[in-house]
Design a protein around this nucleic acid. Structure first.
Lengths: 162, 162
DNA sequence: CTTTAACCTGAACCAAAGTTGAGGTCAATT
DNA sequence: AATTGACCTCAACTTTGGTTCAGGTTAAAG
């Protein structure tokens, strides 16, 4: 049993979407979604079913790890696009694209730490006064993405009876 | 000029939505939105226009600061709901509810730091192997909110030719 | 008194990251 | 051959934090 059978319609090195879901822990619908977004790819059987290369497992793992780091799917896709298309990515390839996330994490940790320290100041002085508090004043840009809701304008506020 | 005029239709301690927008830096549409969500409140003039108490400025400032910290509006609203309804909140009140964000930031910074260090491990070993890598294995729960995409299940993966 | 700026409501729309459901096909087992 | 479970597509729906638009009212200034 389990002898290599060249007649099976798909190499047992290929995974069905259900296999991939079970082994990656990602739902089938999410895998379809990732594929629509170009994060993973499949070939189709004669019956139009997806077959994934084993390598895809690693890609999905990378996607999930990256999401935990807080990277949006679009950026993850861009990183995956820098992997070589002509050969299976090596450990070195993965190391390279992971390094970007590491740097990103460093930066975000530092921003959050600064934010926390400012918050401590503000708690200390009890202010939350728009004019004085650095927190309301995002001169250091943080989270300035998306359809922005205007910048905070902050002057002329102090005589706040409340 | 500027003598206290008791006949003006609204106390100059009240702000129109435009005033509040200008002074807080938040758009009018966002203020409407915050009001629908119960984060701020207004009285209405006879002509159905909003008038905000000056105190509202501080609430809006708190909302924006909290958003920078990464707190969702619903949680901000819940925090604001713990402020006294019968009197104007004091500096001590603001300090109290800000403290929660500080603790939250601390926790998130620590989680991100752990994540970064795990990532360093994984970069070091080049693995991203689902079985070995702690990153893919969110036993320490992080970002497990929302309609969750199942937990990662991770065993039986190693013989990955890719 | 008229004009204009600011205000009102409600509905529709945006992105992200999927989920859910309907209606239909494929494949493996009995 | 029939059944069952896994698969397919497409469309609609979810949440968060708003923005934009249409159509109509109010208020302040000239």
């Amino acid at each position: 049993m389990e002898a290599p059978n060249p007649a099976v319609p798909w190499d047992r090195d290929e995974l069905t979407v259900g296999d991939l879901a079970a082994r990656s822990g990602v739902s089938v619908s999410a895998l379809h979604f990732y594929e629509r977004k170009g994060l993973i790819a499949s070939r189709r059987t004669s019956g139009n079913q997806r077959r994934y290369r084993r390598e895809t497992l690693r890609r999905v793992a990378f996607v999930r790890v990256s999401q935990r780091v807080g990277i949006p799917l679009a950026d993850i896709g861009a990183a995956l696009d820098t992997l070589p298309g002509d050969r299976t990515p090596t450990a070195k390839d993965w190391r390279r694209i992971s390094q970007a996330w590491h740097d990103d994490l460093d930066a975000r940790i530092e921003q959050l730490s600064r934010l926390r320290d400012h918050l401590t100041d503000c708690i200390g002085c009890g202010c939350l006064s728009l004019r004085r508090c650095a927190l309301t004043n995002p001169h250091d840009e943080l989270a300035e993405a998306g359809p922005g809701p205007r910048t905070l304008l902050v002057d002329g506020l102090e005589p706040d009876g409340a």
